[in-house]
Nucleic acid binder design. Structure first.
Lengths: 245, 245
DNA sequence: GAGTGGTCTAGACCACGAG
DNA sequence: TCGTGGTCTAGACCACTCA
C-alpha cells in the first residue's frame, strides 16, 4: 500500500467532505477562510489549499477569488440524450439558454469536421445553458452558411425551439456521429462554465450528415462532469443480429 | 483578463510543452530532475512541480516516483464503439487483455444497476487492456451468476473471443444503455491505469437487457481521456422521422 | 481598506526505485 | 546508499471582492 500515513491533505479533504455531508457546512454557505481552516487543522496554507483543490475537482466546493470558498448546492444532474435525440432535450424547464450567433470562416479543425474548404463561411451558434446562476453546458454549433436559417435568432428562442431546430436542421438528415472524450477544460472554458480547471468535462463532437453525404452540422458540446452525463440507448431487433462488417 | 503576468507555472509548462514538441525532449526520455529544472527556470521546486502537474494532466509526462519524469510516447488513440458494437472492438491487434474472473455478491450500486436483490451472486470479470506496457482501459463486467458461462476463462481468451462474448452474452439481447460521464479517477483507478489522478477519464456504464426486460450484463468501463474516446453512430431512415414522444 | 484567495519561495524531511 | 519524486512548512507579496 502507498498510504501508510494518509497525508494530511487527504485527511482534511475527507473531513471537509464529511462536514459537508452531515450538513455542518450547508449548501451555498461560505466556508471559514483558508487561513482559519489552516489554523484549525494545524497545517500550512498550501496544504489546506491542496485539500480544497480536491473538493473543487469533485465539484463540492467553489472558490471565488477575493470572496471565499463556498459549498456548492447539489446540482441537478442533466442528461444529454445521444442518438438522434436533440441535444439538451432533458434539460429541466427552469433551464435558461443564452444564444449568440455569428458568422465566421472555417478554420483549424472545422474544415475537416464539416468537410468544407478552409475559410468557407460558417454560421456559429453559441449556446450556454444555465440553471439559476450555474452554467450547465456549453455548445458551439457550426453550420455551413448556405444551410443556416436565413433569420438569425435575434430574440432568444425557447429551449424547445432550439431543441427542435437542432434535432433536424435538415429534412434529409441521415446519420449522426457523436464522439465523446474526457479531458480537463481549458482556462477559457473553465471561466465560461464557472468551473475549476481541475473538474473534468465531457467533450462531445456531433456531426450530422444528410442523405447526400454532406455534413450539415457540427456541434462541439462541453458538459461539466459534475452535473451532466450522456446517455445512449440502442434497441436491437432480435431477428436482425448485428450484421458485422 | 486575468493573466496579466502569465504565471511562471504556465510559462514553464508552455516551454516544456514546446521543448517536447520540437523533440528537444524525446518520447520515452527522462526529463532532467525537478531540482535541475527548478534551477534552470529559477523557480522553487513546488512551482516547477506545479508546471509538471499540468503536463501530467495532459498525459504528456509521466512521473515515476523515485525515478524521474518521463516524456510519454505518443499514445495510439483507441475508440470505443457504442451502440451494439462490442466493447474494445477497435483495439489494435497488439492489444493485450488481462482478465480476472471472480464471483462476488451484489453490493452498493450493483443491485440497482442489474435489478437484482442485494447479495445475489454475480460473476465479475475484470479486463485490463494493455498496449505494450501502457494500460488503455479498465473494464468491470457484472453478470448474474446463473447467466454466466459455466466455464470460467482459466486461460486468457483472445480479445476477439472476449469481444464476441461481450457482444451477445445472451441471444435475446434487445437493449443496450450506455451512460457516459467525465471525472477524475480515484486513487485506485489511477494506480491501476498508471495515470495521474489529474488526468480525466471517461466513465461508461453499459447495461444490456434481454427481451424479457431482465438485465443480463452491466459493465463499468474506464477510458483514460488522453488515449481513448467513444464513438456512437446513428443512422436514420429518412421516411421514419423520430416519432417524438 | 479590510479580508479573501492566488502565487511563490527556500528550504525540510519522508518514501520510493535502482544499483 | 543515493538520487529521485512526494509532502509539507511558514512565511511573503499580489490580485480580487466587497463594503
Amino acid at each position: 500500500m502507498i498510504r501508510s500515513v494518509p497525508s494530511r491533505r487527504d485527511a482534511i479533504a475527507d473531513d471537509l467532505r464529511h462536514q459537508i455531508s452531515i450538513g455542518h457546512f450547508k449548501a451555498g454557505e461560505r466556508l471559514p477562510s483558508e487561513a482559519q481552516l489552516a489554523t484549525h487543522y494545524t497545517v500550512s496554507t498550501p496544504t489546506l489549499r491542496s485539500a480544497l483543490a480536491a473538493l473543487q475537482g469533485e465539484g463540492l466546493v467553489e472558490k471565488i477569488h477575493g470572496n471565499g470558498n463556498f459549498v456548492r448546492r447539489p446540482l441537478r444532474r442533466i442528461t444529454y440524450l445521444g442518438g438522434v435525440a436533440e441535444p439538451s432535450t432533458t434539460f429541466s424547464a427552469s433551464l435558461r439558454v443564452t444564444t449568440r450567433t455569428t458568422t465566421i470562416e472555417a478554420h483549424s479543425h472545422l474544415p475537416t469536421l464539416l468537410n468544407v474548404p478552409p475559410r468557407s463561411p460558417l454560421t456559429e451558434v453559441l449556446h450556454i445553458a444555465h440553471e439559476g446562476k450555474t452554467p450547465h453546458s456549453l455548445a458551439r454549433i457550426y453550420v455551413p452558411r448556405d444551410l443556416a436559417p436565413a433569420a438569425p435568432p435575434a430574440a432568444v428562442p425557447s429551449p424547445e425551439q432550439i431543441a427542435a431546430r437542432l434535432a433536424n436542421p435538415r429534412p434529409l438528415l441521415t446519420e449522426v456521429q457523436e464522439r465523446l472524450s474526457a479531458r480537463l477544460p481549458t482556462q477559457e472554458e473553465a471561466t465560461t462554465l464557472r468551473i475549476s480547471t481541475s473538474l473534468a468535462v465531457l467533450s462531445l463532437t456531433r456531426v450530422a450528415t444528410d442523405a447526400t453525404g454532406r455534413v450539415v452540422e457540427a456541434a462541439l458540446l462541453l458538459l461539466p462532469g459534475d452535473r451532466a452525463d450522456a446517455l445512449f440507448t440502442t434497441r436491437l431487433n432480435v431477428e436482425e443480429r448485428t450484421p458485422k462488417t
